[in-house]
């Protein structure tokens, strides 16, 4: 339980900061997007509690705005993966036969594939091909969420199928079926609740994985394009001058560390319950 609380606390702080980012900008009296060339890599001060970045922008404000992007990518990916994965898992367990074979072979196939190289191929595909505008932060985010979901649903689907199978095999389910309870009600009242625990564990881990994957894609130049800040692109941007201005790299790194650790702790906590 303490792990769950610690994890929730970490994530709560980050999410609260992300939501408060505009307020902080107002309070400190500057706009995070405006470069100030006379103030590059400034040391921490009252106006800039964490100092400034390569264009003289306030690091703390950027970090909190980056939290919105990074957490949004992480949570959206995890939710999409959870949704698709749960649906696929239940469908496989409930229908069985050909549908099950199809879904599970697809899952096995995806699991056997080299994820990162394929992420690279997918990330480099022209967004215009799938109808997204090129070069906009939103379409970068959508692109990353889509490709991470493509790989993310598999883990959830396997867990969901296993859990659903064990529920469907129980005696009281067979009894309910014999009594003429509809399949829809059966799935809603008995199968779904049993899936809550394993799926929420997998979702928490998927958030962590998506945040890390976003930072890796940023390192490879395939992440979210500036000027929109994300933890990944802040970290990738700061590495060039890491010897002269190490703090510009340390803070986004710590933010990723905190977010991923928070998710992992939540997952552990949920699992232990």
């Amino acid at each position: 339980m303490t792990r769950l609380r610690l994890g929730l606390l970490l994530l709560g702080l980050l999410a609260g900061g992300a939501l408060a980012a505009p307020l902080l900008g107002l309070w400190l009296g500057h706009d995070s997007g405006a470069p100030d060339l006379f103030n590059r890599y400034a040391a921490p001060s009252a106006a800039h509690p964490l100092g400034t970045d390569d264009l003289g922008r306030d690091l703390l404000t950027r970090l909190l705005e980056g939290a919105r992007v990074s957490l949004a990518v992480g949570i959206a990916t995890a939710l999409a993966a959870a949704l698709i994965g749960t649906a696929a898992g239940i469908l496989a367990a409930w229908r069985g036969g050909f549908v099950e074979a199809l879904i599970m072979r697809l899952a096995d196939g995806l699991l056997a594939l080299p994820a990162l190289p394929l992420l690279v191929v997918l990330a480099a595909v022209d967004p215009a091909v799938i109808g997204l505008p090129r070069g906009e932060a939103v379409s970068d985010m959508a692109r990353i969420i889509i490709i991470l979901t493509l790989f993310g649903w598999v883990g959830v689907a396997r867990l969901a199928r296993a859990a659903a199978l064990s529920v469907l095999a129980r005696d009281h389910i067979r009894a309910a079926r014999a009594l003429g309870v509809t399949e829809a009600r059966l799935l809603r009242r008995h199968v779904l609740p049993a899936l809550a625990a394993p799926v929420s564990v997998a979702t928490a881990l998927a958030v962590a994985g998506a945040i890390l994957a976003e930072s890796t894609l940023s390192f490879l130049g395939l992440g979210i394009a500036p000027p929109a800040p994300s933890w990944g692109n802040m970290l990738a941007n700061a590495q060039e001058l890491v010897f002269s201005a190490p703090m510009a790299a340390v803070w986004p790194g710590l933010a990723i560390l905190a977010a991923v650790a928070g998710c992992t702790l939540v997952a552990d906590g949920l699992r232990a319950r």
Binding site: S215, G253, L257, T264
Partner: peptide
């Protein structure tokens, strides 16, 4: 902590 650190960092 090991799992949470971005590898290039």
């Amino acid at each position: 902590i090991g799992q949470a650190m971005p590898s290039f960092w």
